[in-house]
């Protein structure tokens, strides 16, 4: 049974589709902007962690008997704060993004029903 509608039609109007998708996404633009900022922050914090760790290790590498523990604790305290914040932000972002993407998918489904 030859090509029963297996002629794969290329998605017409990719630009239009993209615009439509952005329209749905755009309805949440403020939340998304917030998420973007949070994501940015979370990543920066996640990067700060190893950077601070590096500084801490530098201090630790001073050699036997020469380690300045004040400095070490200075850095490790900051590392701790970074990690806590980063994790909290990531969890919030995950949950928010999940709600948004499901809502958008749901809306697309409803839209397709009306049209």
């Amino acid at each position: 049974m030859a090509a029963r509608d297996t002629i794969r039609k290329k998605p017409k109007d990719t630009k239009g589709t993209l615009r439509r998708l952005l329209f749905y996404v755009g309805q949440y633009k403020w939340i998304l902007a917030l998420v973007f900022v949070l994501c940015f922050t979370s990543n920066i914090l996640a990067l700060l962690g190893p950077s601070l760790a590096g500084s801490a290790i530098n201090e630790a590498a001073a050699g036997a008997g020469k380690v300045n523990f004040d400095k070490v604790f200075y850095y490790t305290k900051r590392m701790f704060i970074c990690y806590v914040l980063s994790s909290l932000i990531t969890i919030s972002i995950n949950i928010v993004m999940m709600y948004i993407s499901k809502w958008i998918a749901g809306k697309c489904g409803k839209m397709s029903l009306i049209n």
């Binding site: 760790a53 201090e59 590498a61 001073a62 008997g65 990690y83 980063s86």
Partner: peptide
Amino acid sequence: TFVLNMGLTIVVIVGAIRVNNG
């Protein structure tokens, strides 16, 4: 991620102590 990073922090601290001890 968080728990592991905490472990990392502890490693740095304990590591510093151990380096100090030689």
